[in-house]
Write a protein that binds this DNA or RNA. Structure first.
Lengths: 161, 161
DNA sequence: CAGATTTAAATGCATTTGCAAATATCCCGT
DNA sequence: ACGGGATATTTGCAAATGCATTTAAATCTG
């Protein structure tokens, strides 16, 4: 447990006005990701890729043959929405669904060669947005930032993945 | 310009697989905010508050009488969605729309006493989520984290607000 | 091992969303 | 002062979303 940690948690009785929006991390993160996701969405729209489809492809480019339920967590997409996104990706030949070997309720998702190729073409745009985001922020700072994000995710995640 | 900054930007030609999802800041931020927003949304649902309504109230508790267009940026909500959320908040007496004094196209939004009271009751839940998020992260680290977020927002924001 | 419970995924359906168009007003140049 | 374009907000409408349900299969329990 980390309850005895010397790190003082933010006081729960502070008002939002006292913190100020521009010092309130969740606000800033929503602002940043709102813009990031919107700009990515606009760029992907040309390629016929919605946000759920793009995220699924991105995760599949890195994680091999996850269950649909796992993919939903990684891609941060509701499972029912993901199910429909996978229908489209499968119809376009970018992924393939395959029944799990040992649990026939479950389905594993595989990215196809075509899917990988599609992701190769869209990754540079994601990388560009990423680079713009961190412009003027050196590697040490970025590392520290990512380290804090990892702690935060561990704090709030519900699933063990 | 900051182009000559000594900070080396993340290389645009790195693959996502090389970085790894768990070191990729946008992924982590989407995961964290996805969970944070979902849990808040569930809690607010009881109170009859959608995410756009809750965000509008939160911003209005801090920023006085913004234009609707400004409120949309701060609340990270599409303006047409916000317009409808404001209809509901006004019907519930939590906000008031008032024509701008000098520009009769524009509308300023005011939080009412009832709106402030409602926000007072929901803020503790937001503060709790915030505290959980930063559990085990000390103040210095949180400050540094917020500092990086502020730089990132400056990098990617489109509006000057 | 039968029946009850849980889990995985897909689907029906009502709600929400966001784009594009409509409306109203302002601002600029001439 | 007038016409053309810009700006603020609302609204119509089609598409996307997510909750709840369904279907199917696994697991637990007595």
């Amino acid at each position: 447990m980390t309850d005895q940690s010397p790190a003082k948690p933010p006081p729960t009785d502070t008002r939002l006005g006292e913190i100020g929006l521009s010092n309130y991390a969740p606000y800033l993160m929503n602002r940043i990701m709102g813009r990031y996701n919107a700009s990515l969405r606009d760029e992907m729209a040309d390629l016929g890729l919605s946000t759920p489809k793009m995220r699924a492809l991105a995760v599949l480019s890195v994680i091999d043959a996850p269950l649909i339920r796992e993919l939903a967590v990684y891609a941060v997409v509701e499972q029912s929405t993901l199910s429909r996104a996978l229908d489209q990706l499968a119809a376009e030949g970018l992924i393939r669904r395959e029944a799990d070997a040992t649990d026939s309720r479950a389905t594993r998702v595989f990215i196809t060669e075509a899917g990988r190729t599609t992701f190769e073409t869209l990754w540079p745009r994601m990388a560009e947005s990423y680079a713009r985001m961190f412009k003027g922020i050196d590697e040490a700072e970025r590392r520290a930032f990512v380290g804090t994000l990892q702690k935060m995710l561990a704090n709030i995640r519900k699933h063990e993945i």
